[in-house]
Amino acid sequence: MKDIIIEQFRSFLERVAGFLPNILIGIVLIILGLVVAWFLRVIITRAGQVLRLDHLSERSGLVQILHRSGIKEPFSRLLGKLIYWIVLITFVIMGLNAFQVPAVENILSTFLLYLPNVIVAGILLFLGYLFGNFLGRAALIASVNAGLAVSGLVGRLVKYTVFIMAVAMALELLGIGKDTVLIAFAIIFGGIVLALAIAFGLGGRDAAKEYIDRMLKEKQEKKDEIEHL
């Protein structure tokens, strides 16, 4: 009995002794990751400042887009942070992998397979938000300059269309209700078109008549002959 207990205890100690280096390697990798990530963040941020990336991003309008999305940090610092997290996550994954625990390995491999989808979906949503705002505003300004009375509606339609498309693409990428998203998308758009058709055909008969009359009148009206330049 005593021998069995001792044997079991020795076997446990041997396994712990065999596992300890893995833990140590894992912890060292994570600490190393923290140091490398911090170092690279400082280097990238400084290099961005030297290469005048903040100035360039300002000139290209990127900063304004980020500002409008609530991100107020200079572009070089943002880039430094991004590199920091990418490097740190990479080292943490390597560190956890070094533990060589099957359960952790399984979770990690599932997580790693899914992670790119999550990142790309996040980027898609972010870009969808930015482009939606930008294109919506561009459409609004262009329709006002074209004299369209429904400019506000045009701007909003463009903005939300872009954003909804981005959401649909992100959901599809994450594999969440692929068919449901597609069907919902089709139903919503079909519904909008039908609603507009009904509203314009029945509820908005007078407005439609007035609009068409005005269009015809404008065509008959003598155009401005001013030379602006």
């Binding site: 505003r137 609004l140 300004i141 006002v144 004299g147 009375a149 400019s151 506000g152 701007g155 009206e221 003598k222 155009k223 401005d224 002959e225 001013i226």
Partner: peptide, 22 residues
Amino acid sequence: VHVNIDRMIDMYKLGIKELGDI
């Protein structure tokens, strides 16, 4: 030179109404 003043003023008012926030 023919000028359609009303149309210009309408465009101005439309601009203030729709682009006011910008």
